[in-house]
Design a binder for these strands. Structure first.
Length: 263
DNA sequence: CTTTAAACCTGCTGGC
DNA sequence: TGCCAGCAGGTTTAAA
């Protein structure tokens, strides 16, 4: 049930297990995909790359597997031949001689020609991936004030995958707190400094989450572990000013904020 | 044009 | 223990 950082971490783990190794077998639960299983045996996975919250698994025969986990899809890495007991429905299994990657529960699963996968109706509308290392703050600041985004309230804008791909409900709350902005603010109302602070938080908070959320990777931690400052902390004191964190419904989902620091 | 509500996919939690 | 309602970090669609 991930946002961009969790998807990217999952992609890293999947890629480390199977990229570049010939597939001993492929299996799909959905009838429409079953014919592809034969065509994938013996082929290699060239890359497993996230686009926002979607995942693209590219094979060396010109095909790409598109998957989106929505709230409930889960990928697992297992030893070859293993199918752990689970109440979840297995939807995809890709196995090499050593490792297997299994997708459970997800319902958005398609196979496209790699050359045209970016025409996928969902992918075609995505903004830049917020975790793309090449994405710079200046570009984000410019995007904020672009005509199609500038007049929209930040509460809705930050959840729009067409603005930046990979943000979700916890990142929205944490970014707005970090930038000290109320969710009702609009880019067009922000001065240059506030806009720059927002752009910095839009990139910095997801990147920090990607680096540090969950179990530390590769031994030692590089910096302070990610923790929520406002998300699901209703009533607890704001770490900056001590005011109790509030929970509001906005855009049909819970939004947590400090009513004092976020103006 | 922007925002909101409802619906859908599936899984989990808490109450009865 | 079993069932159901409600909710969830997502997305789309229609309507206000």
């Amino acid at each position: 049930m991930p946002e961009g950082p969790e998807i990217r971490r999952a992609a890293d783990a999947l890629a480390a297990a199977v990229v570049g190794v010939p597939l001993a077998g492929a299996w799909f639960a959905f009838d429409a995909l079953k014919p592809y299983a034969r065509r994938l045996r013996g082929r290699r996975i060239e890359a497993i790359a996230p686009h926002g919250k979607a995942l693209l698994t590219r094979f060396d025969n010109g095909l790409t597997l598109y998957t989106h986990n929505q709230l409930y899809g889960v990928w697992r890495v297992v030893d070859a031949g293993q199918r752990p007991a689970s109440s979840r429905a297995l939807r995809v299994a890709l196995e090499t001689a050593h490792k297997g990657i299994l997708l459970y529960s997800a319902s958005d699963i398609e196979i496209w020609p790699s050359a045209r996968v970016h025409e996928h109706p969902f992918l075609a509308r995505l903004g830049p991936d917020v975790l793309d290392p090449a994405l710079e703050e200046a570009a984000v600041a410019a995007r904020l004030v672009a005509p199609r985004f500038a007049r929209r309230a930040l509460a809705g804008l930050l959840l729009d995958q067409g603005f930046l791909a990979g943000l979700g409900n916890y990142l929205r709350a944490e970014i707005l707190w970090q930038a000290r902005l109320a969710p009702s603010r609009r880019p067009v109302d922000l001065d240059t400094d506030a806009c720059a602070a927002l752009a910095q938080a839009l990139l910095g908070v997801p990147r920090h989450s990607y680096r540090t959320r969950g179990r530390p990777r590769g031994g030692q931690l590089q910096d302070t572990p990610f923790r929520f400052r406002v998300f699901e902390r209703t009533g607890e004191p704001c770490e900056r000013c001590g005011t109790p964190i509030e929970k509001r419904a906005q855009g049909g989902r819970p939004l947590y904020l400090c009513p004092r620091c976020q103006r």
